[in-house]
Design a protein around this nucleic acid. Structure first.
Lengths: 233, 233
DNA sequence: CGAAGACTGTGACGCGGGTCACAAACGTCC
DNA sequence: GGACGTTTGTGACCCGCGTCACAGTCTTCG
């Protein structure tokens, strides 16, 4: 239980995420956080395993302790569209947890993934006790809204290549590492995975990527991308 | 100031919106609401007048007391896309008010419109005093997120006619009146206005609408639409 | 090592829907 | 009741991008 909290010497646990480091618990009384941590559940998903599906009841929020989670929806035709890919330290599922509604998107593990889940009861108890937590939650929700609005805009009024450019920008910023050759995207994704994300076809994405590579705007190193000129993309 | 609050005999003021009737103030101590109302500002916009633009600083939330407000963004090419059209009793601009960030969308009046604005300071004072208000705000934000996610899905994975169908459904539900002939959409919009909303061209929209009219799924009565068979659309 | 499977690269083709260019119908203001 | 601005109706044309159908290349595992 809550082994995310285990802190010790240089073990594997070091790569884990500690709750108190999360934005949402910033400025919160450590004892409150610890109490939440004690009541939190830990759970491991295998690669490809489904955590929840669209329409499921929701009563918990999740934190990615280690691994990779994909959030998606399905079209009427049954095609899955990726909304986001989350790695260590990401919080998700908070809307369902907060309002008790059904899940509007599905979540599944892209790799073996360890999650920490916090139940609604636990969270609301803390919410009642600490006004700062309230502020943090509101901030989180506002950030989410700004993010979805931005992506919404992309989706409605940008063309496919521009949408891809946005995603690359996001990847470079959130999952990139600066190297002499450019910003290296650490998060390795196949073209199909990126295509689902940008809501375009794998073939189309391929062509755009190669065009950019020819223009020396990026380097493709078998799945590993290096973005050279983010501005011009 | 706060003439939205004026309650009296059968005057024009009756059509106005009273703060305490809003969802966001549901279950809140009347004296708290009244205090907010006293500090609230009232403002009238002429038809077409801009309330705020993308990138503006934000420090207030607005309530439509009477009239019609359009929320929009602009594409890189400069085309405006409508995100929503709001009428009496609608609350908007809360994100900017809550997190103090810049506005991500613009707002302007489609008709002569009276608004009530509530400043951040005022709101946060009430937020500190009443935990129920906190719940309501979180609920509001969750609802917003669910709404944007849904529209996001529409935008990315439905085709133009389906997007239009969604908007019609929304119009029928929120701005419709049941009549023997079908659900009459009270909110009169020109085809151009609807086209901006569905992110399609006016011509394209026209053709779809006429096709549906031929199939007797709806009746067009110069701007006034009557939806007959919402299911099949 | 060799075969099977996953991933990437590329052309041919088609369709949805945007753009353009009008014509017709309606409103509204002297 | 003209006359002008706005809204609606329609066809011709075009382009982005998805689909299909392959051919290479990498990976993995018996």
């Amino acid at each position: 239980m809550a082994d995310v909290q285990s802190s010790g010497a240089a073990t594997d646990a070091d790569r884990s995420v500690k709750l108190e480091t999360l934005d949402i618990f910033k400025g919160i009384d450590p004892s409150t956080v610890e109490q939440i941590a004690r009541k939190a559940q830990s759970r491991t998903l295998e690669k490809g395993e489904l955590l929840f599906n669209v329409g499921d009841m929701s009563d918990a929020l999740y934190v990615v302790a280690e691994g990779r989670v994909r959030i998606w929806t399905v079209s009427a035709a049954g095609a899955e569209v990726t909304l986001n890919v989350l790695t260590n330290g990401a919080v998700f599922g908070e809307i369902g947890m907060l309002d008790g509604g059904v899940r509007t998107a599905g979540a599944s593990a892209m790799l073996r993934t360890r999650l920490t889940s916090i139940a609604r009861r636990t969270f609301y108890e803390a919410l009642d006790r600490d006004p700062q937590l309230v502020r943090n939650v509101i901030d989180l929700l506002c950030r989410r809204l700004r993010w979805t609005s931005a992506r919404m805009e992309d989706a409605t009024l940008r063309q496919a290549p521009q949408r891809l450019a946005r995603i690359l920008g996001h990847l470079a910023r959130d999952h990139g590492k600066a190297t002499p050759r450019g910003i290296e995207v650490v998060l390795k994704l196949t073209q199909s995975e990126m295509a689902q994300w940008t809501a375009m076809s794998r073939e189309g994405l391929n062509k755009v990527l190669n065009r950019w590579a020819e223009e020396r705007l990026l380097i493709q190193d078998r799945g590993g991308l290096i973005v050279r000129d983010l501005e011009r993309i």
